[in-house]
Structure formats: structure tokens, C-alpha cells
Nucleic acid binder design. Structure first.
Length: 331
DNA sequence: AAACAGTGCAACCGCTCTGAC
DNA sequence: TGTCAGAGCGGTTGCACTGTT
């Protein structure tokens, strides 16, 4: 508190580290171990302050550091953890092996944060920014269908919506650790739900998610999302054809109305392309064609491949209004 | 081809917090 | 209880790279 910084002395070097400095630091730590940073520079023959040495070691030279681009799974994990932990970069980094808090922070500020803002999502609360939504375009694009709306209403589970609302509010107020615990508790439940999801089976086959080694293309944290649990609930209540249509729309709509865990759907554009061609979704598309214009997963998922992650996220976050939703009734 | 603007990232700064002594 | 070192965080800077004009 009020302590002068360790590196305000003159004569200490700043700026980028040279390979020679890196080598000296690495060799010294290999022999003496990390720690005692105040005396380390002198002992290692470095014209650096201890803090600079510590940062250089922890953020760059540590042997377990993973360099290079963040993978899709890593980015997804960061978003989810940030929604729970906030700007606790070290806590997030602790759950991302090989990544440092500084690296994650930089990546968040330069990539994810901007992307969320472009998508109309508040990067702090992870909630859609309603003030940025273009309601008029949404209303104009919606087609009215009262009978379908009735079908949708039968799908709406009040308890489910209540739970979602609770999560949304609690995510902004509760202790992050408690929320994290809740997410973890939901993990097993969600796995069960995914297995039970019929007839619309959202569980992909191995070759549908070629980018990820897991059958379920989500990192562990991704599965532990209440939103996914909700989607599982929603997807299991429908039985009739019309219901199926509304069901997929509802899933997409629910995704867009829920906070951060919705990112956990884990679909790259590669995967979405495969999904749209899969038999399960094909049947849905066929059925929807019988009734009205195509809406649902195909419209939600089929996007250009310019930026795979952004397009995937932005599509999930689009406030798609199902054809079966009669907006006039809400006006 | 050159100038300029935008972007990404490593590194730093200043501060607070925590735990050991 | 006070001091100190280390850790952590938010914000910022400087530079290299890339895209645009």
C-alpha cells in the first residue's frame, strides 16, 4: 500500500526482452527456481526489475505456456468462464491450461469483447443489449401465423422460463463461485438431457464435428450450462410436426434470450453446415417446407464462412422470431 | 510503391490485495 | 499491528504487421 514500485530505479532496462535476456532468466530459474524476484535480476545478471522478470517468466517463458491462436474451444470456455467469474483473469487462466491471465485478458479485450459488442451483447453482463436491437426490422420480417402460435404456446413451459429468468438475474448478482458450482452441478444433468433428446436429437455424430475430438463438441465447461439444460427441456416437449418447427425456433430464440451460457452450443460453421445436412435436421427442414418458408436451424445456422466463430456466435445471438410466433398478439 | 490507418500483442505502469513474518 | 514481497488486475503504451487509399 503506497509502496514505491520495484522498477522505478534508473538504469534498469525496459521494453522487449532479447533472446540473451530470456536465456539468462531461464537458466537462472532452472538452477535456482522461480521466486525471490527482487533479488533474482541481480543474481541472474539482468538489468531488469524483479517484476519485469516475473511477468516475463509467467507470461512468456514458462515451459508450460501454450502459444498461438486460441482454439474455438478455448474461446468458448473463456466466454463462459467470464460470464461466471467476471474479470478474474487468473481464475479463468487456471481453467485454461497453458494460457496466462495476461494473454486471456488481451485476447478478451482485442477479440471477444469487440465481437460481443458487434453482436449487441454486453460483454460485462453477457446479456443482449436490448437498447441496440432493431425491433422494427424484427417485426417486419416476422410472418404472422396464429395457429402456429397456439402450437408454440403449448410448448412453453412456465417453470422453464422461470428458471431461465432466475439464471439471468442471478448471473448478475450471485457469488460467482456459487454460480460456477451451479454450472458444474448441471453438467451431469445436461449430459443426461442430451442423451434423451428425441426426436430432435441435438447430439451430433462423430464426423459431424470434425474440428473437435469429442463426440459432444463442447469443452467440459460448455456442457455445464443451465441454458443447455433448458434447451434440452424445451426440445423434449414437442411431439407433433408443427411442434417440431416451433421447437427448433424456440431453441434458437431461447438461445438468443439467455445470457452467456448460450455460447455453449458449440457449433462452428463447419459443424453447422454438417448439421443442416444431417438427417435429423433434414426432416425438420422438409416439414417446415410443407408449411411455410424455411426457418429454424437452417436459417439460423447457414452462414458465410468469412469468420467462423463470429458467424456462429452472431447467428446464435440473432433475435430470430419464429414464423409460428404471431407478433400481432403481443402488440 | 508509398503513405496512412487500423489491428494485435507483448510489455509496462500504477494500484490493490493477500499472506508471511 | 505494521511491513514487505508476491500476485493480480485494469488500463495503457509501443511496435510490428496488415489492409486500404
Amino acid at each position: 500500500m503506497g509502496r514505491s514500485p520495484c522498477c522505478d530505479k534508473n538504469g534498469l532496462k525496459k521494453g522487449p526482452w532479447t533472446p540473451e535476456e530470456d536465456l539468462r532468466l531461464i537458466q537462472h530459474i532452472q538452477i535456482h527456481g522461480a521466486g525471490n524476484w527482487r533479488t533474482l535480476p541481480k543474481n541472474a545478471g539482468l538489468q531488469r526489475c524483479g517484476k519485469s522478470c516475473r511477468l516475463r517468466w509467467t507470461n512468456y517463458l514458462r515451459p508450460d505456456i501454450k502459444r498461438g491462436r486460441f482454439s474455438f474451444e478455448e474461446e468458448e470456455t473463456i466466454i463462459q468462464l467470464h460470464s461466471v467469474l467476471g474479470n478474474k483473469w487468473s481464475a479463468i487462466a487456471a481453467r485454461l491450461p497453458g494460457r496466462t491471465d495476461n494473454e486471456i485478458k488481451n485476447y478478451w479485450n482485442t477479440h471477444i469483447r469487440k465481437r460481443l459488442l458487434r453482436m449487441g451483447i454486453d460483454p460485462v453482463t453477457h446479456s443482449p443489449r436490448v437498447d441496440l436491437l432493431d425491433l422494427s426490422s424484427i417485426l417486419n420480417s416476422a410472418q404472422l401465423n396464429l395457429s402456429s402460435l397456439l402450437g408454440l404456446q403449448t410448448l412453453m413451459n412456465p417453470e422453464l422460463l422461470k428458471f431461465a429468468a432466475t439464471l439471468i438475474s442471478s448471473s448478475n448478482q450471485e457469488n460467482p463461485e456459487i454460480l460456477l458450482q451451479k454450472l458444474q452441478e448441471n453438467q451431469s444433468l445436461n449430459a443426461q438431457m442430451q442423451n434423451q433428446m428425441t426426436p430432435i436429437n441435438l447430439q451430433p455424430t462423430q464426423n459431424q464435428f470434425q474440428n473437435t475430438p469429442q463426440q459432444v463438441p463442447l469443452p467440459v465447461q460448455s456442457q455445464a450450462t443451465p441454458a443447455q439444460g433448458n434447451m434440452g427441456d424445451i426440445s423434449m416437449v414437442s411431439t407433433n410436426l408443427n411442434g417440431q418447427m416451433c421447437q427448433e425456433n424456440l431453441i434458437a430464440s431461447s438461445a438468443s434470450l439467455l445470457p452467456s451460457p448460450i455460447y455453449s452450443y458449440g457449433m462452428t460453421d463447419n459443424t453447422t453446415a454438417d448439421l443442416s445436412e444431417s438427417s435429423a435436421f433434414q426432416s425438420l427442414n422438409d416439414s417446415s417446407n410443407q408449411n411455410s418458408q424455411n426457418f429454424g436451424f437452417e436459417s439460423v445456422l447457414s452462414t458465410p464462412l468469412s469468420d467462423e466463430r463470429e458467424s456462429y456466435c452472431s447467428n446464435l445471438m440473432k433475435f430470430g422470431i419464429p414464423d409460428c410466433l404471431d407478433l400481432d398478439d403481443f402488440m
